[in-house]
């Protein structure tokens, strides 16, 4: 069984991003970049399925500027067998990403595609579902558990009131939620080994896919700041403030 894992290079989750002074976007220059945390979980799950003997090959794919190859090397250091980088000049929207991935799926024919449920930069939470729609294949989003058997995946999904378990026929698309697993740290020998794993680079312009954005960014602004609050000295003072000043209890 072949597993495809799309991964995205994003601003590290520990960094609070600021808005550019001209209001055209977020200031990302010079910031630490990492693999999107949900994609790390997706890679980990795919590698575990390979270690269990369920999967035979794990292919990581990334879309973006050439530096996204660092993210692919990280995926390969975690255990992915090879990488595919589709280079683009700008960061494409989820619909365009899904269309580019559709081309790769056509070439590689994976049985399972695992993606992070959401990229922490644009917070779209859309690529997996869009890819599933384009491919006309079943989807299991927000996965907290995946079991593969008899050509199907049984996936536990985090829903509003609790957990739902569904069974989907492979090939299928799964998006990873936080509780699916705890990703490993790549060891130094594996980081070295990853440098020798195959990495294919494809220019998005050479693919028959229209990746022009559908959304124009009109402006990006900081949200209004909250007024500074006060420290209270005691429970009695807190209750007094909530009752008489804030009037919320």
């Amino acid at each position: 069984m072949k597993i495809l894992v799309p991964v995205k290079r994003v601003v590290d989750f520990n960094i609070k991003v600021r808005v550019k002074s001209d209001g055209t976007g977020a200031e990302t220059a010079g910031l630490k970049m990492s693999m999107n945390p949900f994609d790390e979980i997706a890679v980990e799950e795919a590698v575990r399925l390979k270690e269990k003997g369920v999967a035979t090959e794990v292919i990581a794919v990334s879309i973006g500027e050439p530096k996204a190859q660092d993210t692919l090397r990280t995926a390969m250091a975690m255990g992915a067998d090879r990488g595919i980088l589709i280079t683009t000049e700008t960061s494409p929207e989820p619909l365009a990403v899904a269309k580019l991935l559709q081309v790769i799926v056509g070439r590689e024919n994976p049985d399972l595609i695992i993606l992070g449920k959401q990229a922490i930069d644009d917070d779209m939470n859309a690529t997996g579902q869009m890819l599933a729609g384009l491919l006309g294949r079943p989807q299991a989003t927000f996965a907290s558990k995946i079991e593969i058997a008899d050509g199907r995946a049984e996936v536990s999904r985090e829903i509003d009131g609790g957990v739902e378990t569904i069974s989907i026929a492979l090939p299928a698309i799964v998006t990873a939620d936080l509780r699916l697993n705890e990703p490993r740290y790549a060891s130094l020998p594996n980081i070295m080994k990853a440098k020798k794993k195959p990495l294919e680079t494809i220019d998005a312009a050479s693919l028959p896919v229209d990746i022009k954005p559908r959304l124009t960014v009109v402006s990006v602004v900081e949200p209004s700041e909250r007024k500074p609050g006060v420290k209270v000295a005691s429970v009695a003072e807190l209750v007094e403030k909530l009752r008489n000043e804030a009037k919320v209890i």
Partner: peptide
């Protein structure tokens, strides 16, 4: 976007 640290106004074509 960015965990609510920025608000983007977008126009769809």
């Amino acid at each position: 976007i960015y965990a609510g640290n920025a608000l983007a106004t977008v126009c769809s074509s």
